[in-house]
């Protein structure tokens, strides 16, 4: 298969420059494009909104800095929403670097909610290997799987965990996942075996693969897909975060690329006329 090249293309560097400016400006001066909230994102919001106060949730950080842009804003928005609803958060990570992602997210939200206390309102239990097996084991006994938190405090001494034995005491699970292990394993192990409500977010690339799980059996309670999903969540909890400005940049970039295609065609058309 071959694609012939067109004659004398304009210097690509103009395209690079325009794109760079087009993406950078909306980050500095957010435009605030209204983003229409999709049903699947709204389901995630409603899950947290409709769960009673003082419930305990398990939040799994299954990603690393490579997918920071898409998943970290979700983490921040969900933590903020959960704190507003007075839910208590048990953070875990199935990816090694998820631990620091969790720490960063809590640190950021604590500036806004200084009265939330570690050990009472949230706790970081650190990284666990094993993926699916680990998730299943938590269904039998969480303490066996997570004996200590990241500060080496034993499970028994953590106030939040006093009455937590297994998934029965967990109102819902949120997994922010960049691949395996992650959300898929929670759906298969935590929901399918222990009937816990599972929800979460993924990168834009892997979103389509999860849509089939949002079905009448509620294998998945909604899903945040990529930066768009994160931006939608920010708009639902009325926060202008990095996803909102990122989404502005994203939209501008899309318009630019479509403009580039139009320009390319105009130039090709002119070339053809000149030759004729």
């Amino acid at each position: 298969m071959s694609t012939p090249k067109t004659s004398k293309p304009i210097d690509r560097r103009y395209i690079f420059l325009i794109l760079l400016i087009g993406v950078a400006l909306p980050l500095i001066f957010p435009l605030g494009f209204k983003s229409e909230v999709s049903d699947i994102s709204r389901q995630v919001y409603q899950l947290i909104e409709n769960t009673p106060e003082n419930s305990i949730m398990l939040m799994s950080f299954d990603y690393d800095p490579a997918t920071n842009t898409e998943l970290q804003p979700m983490a921040k928005a969900i933590i903020e929403h959960a704190f507003r609803r007075n839910h208590k958060i048990i953070a875990v990570a199935l990816w090694p670097q998820g631990v620091q992602m969790a720490d960063q997210a809590f640190e950021y939200i604590l500036e806004k909610y200084p009265d939330k206390k570690y050990g009472i309102d949230y706790v970081n239990m650190g990284f666990k290997t094993g993926g699916m097996v680990t998730i299943q084991a938590m269904g039998r006994n969480i303490k066996d799987v997570l004996p200590k938190d990241t500060k080496n405090t034993p499970f028994e001494e953590i106030e939040l965990l006093r009455n937590v034995r297994n998934y029965k005491q967990i109102a819902y699970v949120i997994s922010l996942s960049a691949g395996d292990p992650g959300l898929k394993q929670y759906v298969m192990a935590a929901h399918d075996m222990y009937k816990v409500k599972v929800s979460g977010g993924t990168t834009a690339v892997s979103t389509p693969g999860f849509i089939p799980y949002i079905n009448d059996q509620n294998q998945l309670y909604g899903l945040l897909g990529g930066l768009k999903g994160a931006a939608e969540y920010e708009s639902m909890i009325k926060v202008k975060g990095t996803a909102t400005s990122g989404m502005d940049a994203q939209s501008v970039a899309h318009i630019l690329i479509i403009l580039f295609i139009v320009m390319g065609n105009i130039r090709a058309f002119k070339d053809k006329n000149q030759k004729a």
Binding site: T3, K5, T6, P9, R12, I15, F16, L19, A253, L256, I257, F260, I261, M263, G264, N265, A268
Partner: peptide
Amino acid sequence: IASAAYRAFIM
């Protein structure tokens, strides 16, 4: 991806 789109998607 932008420069490739400019060049390649020609009618």
